[in-house]
């Protein structure tokens, strides 16, 4: 028996509107601080290049208990996930918890559970995605490294201003994902047969 065709989906950015949530909370916590809009940051790890006091304001928001319960859902993400599941794709959510936000890990499970009880059972929280098996990983991070130098998955970059230099398949709109996966799935299932 072979592994079912498995797609790992990152949560923050591809599914949850993380940056928008952080910016909104930073502005709410520090109304006097000017915080740039979501979508304007051109570096994945933006804090070191953000001037004060904006940096401290964003950091406080990122570490605020409850932050990860309040995100909006990215347009067309859920309907596409439902479509993939109904098409027999083994969808798994694969996300890294913040090591400094004290309620992040539990809040992520809570947030996914509010979206779908089915999806919460499919959720893995890990600091090292190279240690997770799957045929495809959809993720916005520019470079994904870990202990395993030869991850099993093929990478699809979820388009963002800070990952423009990353090379490979690129997803701009959730509705394009099923067609993008088709040849990968076909090739895998033919090899596995």
């Amino acid at each position: 028996m072979s592994i079912p065709f498995t797609v790992l989906l990152d949560i923050d950015k591809p599914i949850a509107m993380w940056e928008e949530g952080v910016v909104d909370l930073a502005r709410e916590m520090h109304p006097d601080v000017e915080v740039a809009d979501a979508g304007t940051r051109e570096v994945y790890d933006f804090l070191p290049v953000t001037p004060e006091p904006e940096r401290s304001s964003l950091l406080a928001a990122m570490n605020a208990p409850g932050l990860y319960r309040g995100f909006q859902v990215v347009e067309h993400a859920l309907e596409t996930i439902d479509l993939l599941l109904s098409d027999g794709v083994n969808v798994k959510l694969c996300s890294t918890p913040s090591p400094t936000n004290p309620t992040c890990a539990s809040d992520k499970y809570w947030w996914v559970g509010e979206l779908s009880r089915e999806l919460v059972k499919r959720t893995t929280l890990t600091f090292d995605k190279t240690m997770c098996m799957g045929h495809v990983l959809v993720d916005d991070k520019d470079v994904i490294t870990g202990d395993n130098p030869n991850p099993m998955w093929e990478r699809i970059i979820y388009d963002a201003p800070y990952n423009q230099h990353a090379t490979g398949l690129r997803l701009y709109d959730w509705r394009d994902l099923p067609a993008m996966l088709e040849p990968i799935r076909f090739s895998y299932e033919r090899r596995a047969a």
């Binding site: 918890p97 090591p99 004290p102 890990a105 992520k108 499970y109 890990t126 090292d128």
Partner: peptide
Amino acid sequence: TCASDKLVWLEEEYSRDLAKTAILTGD
């Protein structure tokens, strides 16, 4: 609070570095 508490426990009992190796998964 289980998921976050497990990470806190690992950090306090071992170290943040080792806590950051955790994989929390239903599968």
